[in-house]
Structures are given as structure tokens and as C-alpha cells.
Design a binder for these strands. Structure first.
Lengths: 332, 332
DNA sequence: TTGTATGCGTTATCAT
DNA sequence: ATGATAACGCATACAA
């Protein structure tokens, strides 16, 4: 790689003159600037980023710690983060915790050595369940700003970007009750141990309670045979006329199982799940979804974090990105 | 952040002694080592990564350029890359080209300033269609090693990790013909302009040809109403008794449409698609898939690239990661 | 207008 | 066994 020193030697001028010329300093004559820039172009000179980082003590790089990227929600958030970071001339270093506390902690520790100017984190399932988040506070204590999104730890004082988990499920359930006159609404959950899962369930419970209906919650663990459990439930509880799925996969499975036992969708059974672009594509009939603005969450996270990095005094805030209920079709 | 200089001052010894002590140099007395390490621990000293990078002229960071991460194939490859990179003590900087040549070119240029030691790239759709890949060669000319995976440009001389696109579809088609005695096999494609799409179609054509059957190819563009096209095709061509989908979504849609028009799956119609873990979960009845070892592709890509970075003399090679046909259930 | 010197934090070479 | 010095590449305060 070409360096300032090499350019200087070739042009028989000093390194600092070259540096100033390339930075278009007013102290340098136009003639010199032209000579310098021409040679720099010719040799494809690019200022060494590492040296600039050392000098400025800023990396213009953000560490992004995600539980996984196979889940389309996090994939789309990452898309928003990457696009927005690029727009602000920041790079992102991505680490996947695989839902493991240990991996998450190690990643944060490893990057807390000057590698990044700040962190964007959605905590691992394990960290959230065990309520072990000292490593995150440690980053904050080291003066590395942190922004948490989606899976959030309330006790940690930092910027947050969250979904309206409670409200969106409340409204979805309310819609089923008020508009569709459904009476037996089942909630299907495989994420009840996460902060977001808890909030969604509460939204459902409140809506059910407000209408004097009876709550029905089917909790599925990861290892369960999801298909079989939903199938059996629908068989054993034929009065069920609506399902709210609070994740992005059990809703589609519910539709498949309902069809299998001869239910007409949406006449006999109305299904609302969580999802994104592709979700609706993969179900037939189309599933209604609570569409989380994942891309916007990513965008907003970068914006807020960079605001923090730039400003001297920054007041901590939490931003709620509203979801949108996207109905499959008119279910009348 | 604590620095060597600060430690040195506090201990009243020189910076170089501190540095050597921390690196467990044999030149330093055990007493000093202990004093230094104790203080370093106490102040949570971590060597500044940027300074180390400048000194060593190596970043231990790899630039990963992906077309998208919303496609589960690339998401899973990224998972493999991240895990494997971490294991080798490398970080990854992730850039998404969004299938755009311009974005891809810009990302590579921006990182070609010492930010990364090497690149892992799957080229954007646009770059592949327009056969414009000078920017990739430019990185290689700048002595930054490049590894391409999946979407590969044959003309570029670099390591490659690819899927057995031709072979896997050949075998899937052959399976439908030989074992299931299918006679009217439709290939559904929405990626025929990509290198991988072309190879998969060729695999299908060869298998059909070898059995003296008639090829039927339904090409769908992104903007098409995929459901309607498949639906209409099945309606108009009721003799169709098998479908090979060469992407990860049209197969599931085909199953949904076939059920809709009353076909019994797999009796009347056998469907094989491309996919990964979640794909089979979302279809009912289960779709058979060509399971691309996406995670392994990521792992292998890191391995090969780091081999290249480490060794002085490195001979260029292409590794084929075989896919595996995962049948949904015994279709007899 | 140009050049010299200094420092970012680390490591390596060469004294002492 | 310890310390002084230089160097990585860049940017800037200060001299000339």
C-alpha cells in the first residue's frame, strides 16, 4: 500500500506537505496540490485507516452483537443497521452470541479494547433468562456507549429501541374480538421466557380480560413437536376460532394444521402471527401478521447510537417503533 | 482506557519493561512480572487493538461482502463464517451489497485501505449479470486475498467454495425419475440469471435428457405473482407429477397451490426444493429439499482464506461442498 | 507556502 | 533485568 512517505519521496517534498495537500489545506499552493493529487491518483493512494484510527482515537466502527441471524427478524434488523451505518460512514463488526451468555460476554470483552466506538446489542436468551448482564454494564463503565434493541434489560441505563410488544398484541387480539367477533382465542408461544414474549402475552391477557373472555395459552418449548401439539390442541378444542402466534413460525404451522383437520380459514379459524415480508408469502391462505418494522429498528438504533457518539451531552432515551397489523385479506 | 504508559508511570518503570512483562518475556524478573500483572488486572488493562494493528500491519479482521442476509442461505453461511472466524481469533466486518454492483464496489474500495486482511465475497446479482468484476480483481491486485463462495466468477483467480449445483439437481431429478417413476417433471426457477441457477437448470436438463423425458421450465421473475403463475401452470398442465424448485421459496408455494387445486401430495405430485432447517418446518406436507450445507460453506470459506493469509506460498483452489437430498418422508 | 517535530499505543532492537 | 529509542502511517502544532 502506498503511504504518504512514499509520495513525499517521489515528489521530493515533505510528508506533511503531502498530507496537507491531500486534505486540501489552504496553506498549500494549487500547483503542489495538483502534483500531489495526480501522483496519489496514479498510485491509487488511500490513507491507512488504522493509522487514522490511532491518531484520532476513533474507529468509526460499531460492534453489533446479535443472538442469531437465522431468525428473519434479526436478519432484517441487521439489514437496517448495515445500510444506515454505511450511510453514516461507519463500519460494523458483527458477532453472533448464538443465544449464549458466554459468547456474548466474550465478544463484548474482546471488542472493548478500542476496536469499536460503540455497541448495538440484543441480548442472548441465556443472558436474559439468567439476568446476568454485568458485561454490558462493564462496557458502559469503560465509556463505550451501548444501545440495546428488542430484547432489552430494563435495569441497564442506556439508549433502547423496542417494539410495542404489549400494544401490538393487545390490538391484534382486540381486533379479533371486536371486528371478527371471535370468542375462543388461543395464544401460541415459544418465547415466553424473553422480555418481548412476556410483554406480548400480557397484551393478549389484557385484551381478553377487557372483554371478559377466557385466556388460552399454549406454551411450546423449542424441543417440542410443535406441529403435533398445535394439531392436538385444535382437535381437542374444536371451539377455537382464532389464534394469535407471538413468534414468526408457529402461526404458519397453525394454519397448516387447521387445514389438515378440515378447518376453513379464515371462516372457522382466524390466524394472526408475527412476521415480515416473506412470512405471508409462505402461507396459504395468507396469514395476518403483526409486522414488526425490523429494518426501521436497525436504522433507528444506528441513528441513536451515532447521536450519542457525536454529542458531548447525551440524554438517555427509549424509542418505541410501532408495529403494524397487516391483515391477510378481508375476513369480513 | 489504560495504556502501557500509565502503568509504567504508576510503577515507576519503563514502558518497554511493562510491555515485556505483560508478554511474559523471559528477560523480565518474576517479581516485576507479578507487580505489572497485578496492576494491569486491577486497572483492567487491555492492549489497544488499533495500535497493535498499526505495528503489526495486520488487522486480524476479514471483510465479508454478502448480497443480502434476509435470504436464509446467506444468513446461515454468515453464521458459519462468524463462528469459524471467532474460533480463529478473527473479527468480521459485514457489508451488504443489496444485490447492487455499486454498493459492492464501494464496500470493497472502502475496506481496501488496511481495514481488513482479506475478503469473503458472494457477488451481487447485478455484478454477476453485468459481468463487471474489476473491483474484485483490484482488491487482489492490492495484495488483499479474496475468497468467493456460492456465486462465483470463473474468470477471477482466487479461492472458491461452491455448492455442487449441477450434481445435486441432477441427482434430485434422477431420483424423481428412477425411484418415483415420475414422468412430467417441472422445474421452477426465479434465479436463472445467476451462476448457481444456470448450473442447477443444467443439472435438471441433463437428467431429463438422460431419461428421454421432456423438460418443462417455468421461469418466474421477482416481480411476478409467483402464486398465480404456479397455480395456473398446474391447472393447465394436470399431467405434472413432480416439481423441482431451485430456490428456497417457490417449492413451498408450489405445495400450497397444489393442495389448493386438490392434488394429493406426494401421491399426485412430488416436490423437491432447496432449503435449510426451517424450510421443511413451514410446509405441510413436508417438502423434500436439497439441503445446502450453508454453515459448512461459511466455515470452509474462513478456513481457506485464513490458510491463505497465513501461508507464504498458497496455491489457489476450489472446494465443492456437497449438498444432501433430504426426503420429506418415504414417498414409496 | 513548505518543512520539522511530536504523538497516538504498541512492539522490537539495541544499549546499559 | 531494565530502559532508551525507533518505527508503524497519519495529522497537526509549530518553525522557518
Amino acid at each position: 500500500m502506498t503511504t504518504l512517505k512514499e509520495l513525499a519521496k517521489l515528489l521530493n517534498i515533505s510528508v506533511s506537505t503531502v498530507s496537507k495537500a491531500l486534505n486540501d489545506s489552504h496553506e498549500i499552493s494549487e500547483v503542489t496540490k495538483r502534483r500531489v493529487n495526480e501522483l496519489a491518483d496514479k498510485l491509487n493512494y488511500k490513507p491507512n485507516r488504522i493509522a487514522q484510527q490511532l491518531k484520532s482515537n476513533r474507529t468509526k466502527t460499531i460492534g453489533v452483537i446479535l443472538p442469531t441471524v437465522t431468525n428473519p427478524f434479526f436478519a432484517e434488523v441487521l439489514h437496517g443497521i448495515e445500510t444506515s451505518a454505511t450511510k453514516h460512514k461507519y463500519d460494523i463488526i458483527v458477532c453472533l452470541s448464538d443465544e449464549s451468555l458466554t459468547k456474548e460476554r466474550r465478544s463484548i470483552e474482546l471488542l472493548s479494547n478500542g476496536s469499536v466506538d460503540g455497541f448495538i446489542i440484543a441480548v442472548a436468551r441465556e443472558s436474559q433468562v439468567e439476568e446476568e448482564t454485568a458485561h454490558i454494564n462493564s462496557a458502559i463503565n469503560n465509556k463505550i456507549p451501548v444501545l440495546m434493541f428488542d430484547r432489552v434489560v430494563n435495569e441497564i441505563l442506556c439508549d433502547k429501541v423496542v417494539v410495542d410488544d404489549f400494544q401490538s398484541v393487545y390490538e391484534a387480539t382486540e381486533y379479533l374480538i371486536e371486528k371478527e367477533k371471535r370468542k375462543h382465542i388461543l395464544l401460541v408461544s415459544n418465547i415466553e421466557e424473553l422480555s418481548v414474549g412476556k410483554l406480548r402475552i400480557k397484551g393478549y391477557q389484557k385484551a381478553i380480560e377487557d372483554s371478559d373472555l377466557k385466556p388460552n395459552i399454549l406454551k411450546l418449548s423449542k424441543v417440542d413437536d410443535v406441529e403435533k401439539h398445535i394439531h392436538d390442541y385444535l382437535k381437542n378444542n374444536p371451539e377455537t376460532d382464532a389464534i394469535v402466534s407471538i413468534d414468526h413460525v408457529t402461526g404458519i404451522i397453525a394454519i397448516n394444521m387447521a387445514k389438515k383437520i378440515g378447518k376453513n380459514i379464515p371462516k372457522d379459524l382466524s390466524v394472526i402471527g408475527f412476521g415480515y415480508e416473506h412470512t405471508q408469502l409462505l402461507s396459504s391462505p395468507k396469514i395476518s401478521i403483526v409486522h414488526q418494522k425490523a429494518y426501521e429498528i436497525g436504522e433507528m438504533s444506528i441513528k441513536l447510537l451515532i447521536d450519542n457518539l457525536m454529542s458531548e451531552e447525551h440524554e438517555i432515551k427509549t424509542i418505541v417503533v410501532p408495529s403494524k397489523l397487516k391483515l391477510a385479506e378481508s375476513t369480513k
